[in-house]
Nucleic acid binder design. Structure first.
Lengths: 228, 228
DNA sequence: CGACTGCCTTGACTTAAGTCAAAAAACCGT
DNA sequence: ACGGTTTTTTGACTTAAGTCAAGGCAGTCG
């Protein structure tokens, strides 16, 4: 387990802050250890603070009327979540659950707002993080409304390749069912599309490893949003 | 035309700020008058500041590879736009165009960041605005991925009713073609769905006026996301 | 008044993707 | 290695929604 102060100073949210401020942030952080599958909060719960993932993985998701689940984000170490309602209002807009045994830091609302209001540079960091998220959401909405599933999958694979700094093979860090949910579809459809992309020589799947055989083709697909 | 100071003090972004700060904000604001259909910025343009709508209406939209357009937002008086890349990066993530003859206020990036970094309460306001936007995006993504078009339309009608403070009849403030794009669909589909909802007695359309005949039914539809 | 233009609607057709059901494969603890 | 989950894949079928093409219905302007 990493030191709390270390975790805090590594988080993008607190990047570049002076030692002294990091210490005052550390003082308000509350440790929290969760098993896999633990629900952290539910949509509509009152929000009295936000979290940072110190270790493990957390999914943020919505559930439809019929119980179908759509994953909005999957966050790993260093990522904050639940920070939106700290400023916007009083309730969480989605559900959060751990995907792995996880270690979280909790920041109580009142104390954090107090810190921010005394700390312009912390506020600027926070603004940058929220802005990045907004930008990602813009992309996600674009994907959902302008691209078909194969296009979204291609985008995701290219994003993964960048993330993992590989050009040949990427490894899924989540199950295919979860990936389907993240792409706004269902496992059956995802499975069929992977099979189709195999046949077309774009990729070669082997369990959770996916060989990228035709990066150019994947790029076309992610731009055009349509297969063929 | 309203006074610039008046516009600024009415904008949610600057809500509750002391007179003195409003004045320093006013000093960095640049007036801009646009005809209908004027492109304000394009996706990928370098961003050197953001805007507030003083008067008129602006659409924020993305264009797909084949040229299909999806409207992300439509903003009216008091709303800021383009504020994301001021903190996140250097380029605009979407396009902006006026829908009406409009009056905008432009805030240059450097001057504004400077203001924020000296002004904790302005920073907090900004955080609240961005958080609200993130929350709206969450809803939009939920709509796109969990609901079919009739569900999204019902949500929009109920939102309009709330906005206009009516329970019987709402008036579309945009054309049906634009509404289709905002809902992530095409005019033909929207037209068919409106016809279907008419037949089912949920609504009664008359040009741009839409009578809400069965609010309960619309609520069910917007929750379940499916017609029937 | 009529022709023009932009917006909306309708119809016939195609297709992407969802549902339901079942088989196959991978994973896990004992 | 074994039984029992849980995931993933496959197949047959349905359906929402997109495409293409043709009409209709305003408004407006000469």
């Amino acid at each position: 387990m990493k030191k709390i102060l270390q975790i805090i100073s590594d988080a993008p949210l607190f990047n570049g802050l002076p030692e002294e401020q990091l210490n005052s942030i550390r003082k308000i952080a509350v440790d929290q250890f969760c098993d896999k599958g633990k629900t952290i909060f539910l949509e509509g719960d009152p929000c009295d603070g936000f979290y940072i993932v110190a270790d493990g993985r957390v999914k943020i998701y919505k559930v439809s009327f019929e119980g179908k689940e759509h994953i909005l984000h999957i966050y790993g170490p260093g990522n904050p979540f639940g920070e939106v309602p700290v400023f916007a209002g009083k309730k969480f807009p989605a559900n959060a659950q751990t995907l792995l045994k996880s270690h979280l830091l909790f920041f109580p609302r009142a104390a954090f707002v107090d810190l921010i209001s005394k700390n312009p540079s912390l506020a600027l960091n926070m603004l940058a993080v929220l802005s990045m998220r907004l930008r990602q959401f813009t992309v996600q909405i674009e994907n959902l409304s302008l691209k078909e599933v194969p296009g979204r999958l291609a985008s995701y694979l290219l994003y993964l390749a960048k993330e993992q700094d590989r050009t040949d093979t990427v490894m899924l860090t989540i199950s295919k069912g979860q990936l389907a949910s993240l792409l706004g579809t269902i496992p059956e459809t995802l499975s069929r599309i992977l099979a189709r992309m195999n046949k077309q020589g774009l990729i070669e799947t082997c369990g959770r490893d996916i060989k990228l055989l035709d990066i150019g083709g994947l790029e076309d697909l992610s731009e055009q949003g349509k297969l063929q």
